[in-house]
Amino acid sequence: MRRMTEKMLLRELAFKLPETVKELADCGEKEEVIENLAQSIMEDLRYVYSDNLRYIDDNILREIHRDFIEYMKRSQIIMKSASSEIIKTEIKHGFIREHLMFSSKLRMSGCVDKMIEIDNEEKVPCIIRTGKSPEMGVWASDRASLAAYAFLIEESYNITVSRGFVEYIRDASFRATVIRRKDRAVALHALKRVRAIKSGKFPEKGDHAPCHLCIFSEHCNVKGETLLSKLLRL
């Protein structure tokens, strides 16, 4: 539960960073800004994630609160964020939080963490990640996620989405990436696999599938991947 709470804190921190960076630039009182930010996030957490925090003891929450303040001071996350072009873009243009969209063509829906509208001409999907960042660029799974959100934005607003942002908030690492054709193909392939599974088709087994741990093993008659399926895999 503690780890889950820490992830929720980091997500809320990502949403509040732009206004916090702006506030720090205006007043310059770093210690006070950090403590006020931590207090604000903890208070919001009780309402935004009320179901998740219902069974967490108040003493544990206070301990997490103290550790969170120390983390922000030690990591200098606010100072690092101040130099990020992505955060500067969010300060300038703002963003829509957890924007829910639907695609009737693809029969899918999704809720992007942030959608940044740049001068009404460009809409950029931005996702928040609480894990570690790669040395360069963004993780392949995050590329696919951005491509999927691009599908939703393009259908909803009749525009083309060419790029996306990923905020690896734990490392204060903010990455911009081009949404490539391959990313779109991977996202589309994943969507088709999900549809197939929902319709009752079991996915092909990998070479090291842990079938002995699967609760559906008695009902599954899927064999391992064929050579052809391996060759055609995206």
Rank of each mutant, 00 (worst) to 15 (best):
residue 1 M to G: 13
residue 3 R to N: 13
residue 3 R to C: 02
residue 4 M to R: 15
residue 5 T to F: 06
residue 6 E to G: 00
residue 7 K to S: 15
residue 8 M to Q: 11
residue 9 L to S: 06
residue 9 L to N: 06
residue 12 E to C: 03
residue 13 L to V: 09
residue 15 F to A: 04
residue 17 L to I: 14
residue 19 E to S: 13
residue 21 V to T: 11
residue 21 V to F: 01
residue 22 K to T: 07
residue 23 E to F: 00
residue 24 L to K: 01
residue 25 A to V: 04
residue 28 G to E: 00
residue 30 K to R: 14
residue 31 E to Q: 13
residue 31 E to M: 10
residue 33 V to I: 15
residue 33 V to L: 06
residue 34 I to V: 15
residue 35 E to Q: 14
residue 37 L to D: 03
residue 41 I to W: 00
residue 42 M to F: 03
residue 44 D to C: 08
residue 46 R to C: 11
residue 47 Y to T: 14
residue 47 Y to M: 12
residue 49 Y to M: 07
residue 51 D to M: 09
residue 54 R to E: 15
residue 54 R to W: 12
residue 56 I to Q: 10
residue 57 D to K: 10
residue 57 D to C: 07
residue 57 D to F: 03
residue 58 D to Y: 06
residue 60 I to A: 11
residue 62 R to P: 02
residue 62 R to L: 12
residue 63 E to K: 12
residue 65 H to T: 11
residue 65 H to P: 10
residue 70 E to K: 12
residue 71 Y to F: 13
residue 73 K to F: 15
residue 74 R to G: 08
residue 75 S to C: 02
residue 77 I to T: 10
residue 80 K to P: 04
residue 80 K to G: 05
residue 83 S to D: 14
residue 84 S to N: 02
residue 88 K to P: 02
residue 90 E to F: 06
residue 93 H to D: 05
residue 93 H to Y: 15
residue 94 G to H: 08
residue 94 G to W: 04
residue 94 G to Q: 10
residue 97 R to F: 01
residue 99 H to A: 06
residue 99 H to L: 08
residue 99 H to P: 02
residue 101 M to E: 04
residue 106 L to T: 02
residue 109 S to P: 00
residue 110 G to W: 01
residue 111 C to I: 10
residue 114 K to I: 01
residue 114 K to T: 04
residue 115 M to D: 01
residue 115 M to P: 03
residue 118 I to K: 11
residue 120 N to S: 12
residue 121 E to M: 11
residue 123 K to I: 12
residue 124 V to N: 00
residue 127 I to P: 04
residue 128 I to D: 04
residue 128 I to A: 01
residue 129 R to K: 15
residue 134 P to T: 04
residue 140 A to M: 07
residue 142 D to E: 13
residue 143 R to E: 11
residue 145 S to L: 10
residue 147 A to F: 03
residue 150 A to M: 00
residue 151 F to P: 05
residue 152 L to Q: 03
residue 152 L to K: 01
residue 153 I to R: 02
residue 157 Y to N: 05
residue 159 I to D: 05
residue 161 V to K: 02
residue 161 V to C: 06
residue 163 R to S: 10
residue 164 G to D: 02
residue 164 G to M: 01
residue 165 F to E: 08
residue 167 E to L: 14
residue 170 R to V: 05
residue 172 A to V: 00
residue 173 S to M: 09
residue 174 F to R: 03
residue 177 T to Q: 09
residue 178 V to F: 02
residue 181 R to H: 12
residue 186 V to S: 03
residue 187 A to N: 01
residue 188 L to Q: 13
residue 192 K to R: 11
residue 193 R to S: 13
residue 195 R to V: 08
residue 199 S to L: 06
residue 201 K to R: 11
residue 202 F to L: 07
residue 203 P to W: 00
residue 205 K to Q: 11
residue 206 G to M: 00
residue 208 H to V: 12
residue 211 C to S: 06
residue 212 H to K: 13
residue 213 L to M: 12
residue 215 I to V: 15
residue 216 F to W: 11
residue 216 F to I: 09
residue 220 C to G: 11
residue 222 V to M: 14
residue 222 V to I: 14
residue 223 K to M: 08
residue 226 T to D: 04
residue 228 L to P: 08
residue 229 S to W: 00
residue 229 S to E: 14
residue 229 S to A: 03
